[in-house]
């Protein structure tokens, strides 16, 4: 019987935990002059543990003391971000409901979510980081430099296979196409469910090239299994000082054209001064030692932009994305 009792306590306890996780508090609107006066919710569109989730948690951790309020992370994965957008829209417009944004959102507004959501429904608080796109090959391959690769592809159009995250029109796919377009080459895009899957395929020689990000290939580069030929960045990465940028490798592409960014956005009618407050708080959070350390460990590039710059950036990315979706025959 004793065991019985202990078990029932445990069962009840487990239930309580699950219930408290499932029931999230709803917030009511309050004055904006002394914002923030209560806890802020930050909705992440991926599951816990991914790079976007990590960014959100690290940023929240550093921004809490600056804002003087708790920032609660809520994961709403699914629907390529649509589940999160619906949750954000259902929230308030006074700056207590925030969410994470990546190029998936831009892609969605231009294609599958067209007519349901558009950038006009939202306000863009801060751009936080850039996760540079890189081009990697297997260390056994004959390509030592970006020039080697470009030359080979020019002589053998449509022969090499590029593995990368997402279908035609995804952030990685557009990044590859912008590169291929500028270099004047042609290769076969092979889509994978994640960048990790694409890198795994490259390790097993199932594709010739992987369009990836630095953090995911770092270990394989250090252990001599993979080689990085170029990075889509305005300057060389601290973590990979020997890897040239696309521009240095002779391919004229910059992060102004396309970049994998991560940032924070919220609902459209959030008052301007609340946006400014948030934007400057996040900017300060990004300057803390702990956040900089995280950025370095995760091999991310600083990408701080305030509310106005970020809004302009999103509009420009919307245009680039739309052009490419048309070119690729998606729209």
């Amino acid at each position: 019987m004793k065991i019985c009792k202990r078990f029932s306590v445990l069962i009840i306890f487990t239930f309580l935990i699950i219930f408290s996780a499932a029931c999230s508090s709803t917030s009511s609107s309050q004055g904006e002059a002394d914002y923030p006066t209560k806890e802020i919710k930050l909705i992440v569109h991926t599951s816990a543990g991914g790079p976007t989730d990590t960014m959100a948690r690290k940023l929240a951790e550093q921004a809490e003391p600056i804002l003087g309020q708790k920032i609660v992370i809520e994961n709403k994965p699914g629907g390529s971000g649509a589940t999160q957008m619906a949750a954000l829209k259902a929230g308030d417009s006074d700056g207590y409901t925030l969410a994470t944004i990546t190029p998936s959102h831009v892609g969605g507004w231009n294609s599958n979510l067209k007519g349901q959501y558009s950038p006009d429904d939202f306000a863009f608080v801060s751009r936080v980081q850039l996760d540079p796109y890189i081009i990697a090959v297997n260390a056994e391959s004959e390509f030592e430099t970006l020039e080697d690769l470009v030359t080979y592809m020019k002589d053998h159009p449509g022969e090499l296979k590029v593995g990368g995250y997402g279908s035609v029109g995804s952030g990685h796919n557009i990044a590859w196409n912008i590169f291929a377009d500028a270099a004047g080459v042609d290769a076969v895009w092979t889509n994978y469910e994640s960048t990790t899957d694409a890198v795994t395929a490259l390790l097993g020689n199932h594709v010739d090239i992987a369009n990836s990000n630095p953090e995911i290939v770092k270990q394989y580069v250090d252990s001599g299994k993979l080689r990085v030929l170029g990075v889509l960045s305005d300057k060389r990465l601290e973590s990979m000082p020997d890897v040239p940028t696309y521009e240095e490798g002779g391919v004229d592409v910059s992060t102004k054209d396309w970049a994998q960014f991560r940032g924070i956005y919220t609902n459209a009618d959030v008052p301007e001064d609340v946006l400014d407050k948030l934007s400057s708080a996040f900017s300060k959070a990004m300057e803390t030692q702990e956040f900089k350390q995280y950025m370095q460990d995760a091999m991310m590039e600083p990408g701080d932009m305030d509310h106005d710059e970020f809004t302009e950036f999103i509009n420009q990315q919307m245009k680039v994305n739309d052009e490419w979706l048309t070119k690729l025959g998606i729209n």
Binding site: T54, Q219, Y220, K225, A298
Partner: peptide, 10 residues
């Protein structure tokens, strides 16, 4: 990764 440990061949 959050712990600062990168799983991989090393």
């Amino acid at each position: 990764t959050i712990q600062g440990v990168q799983p991989g061949p090393l």
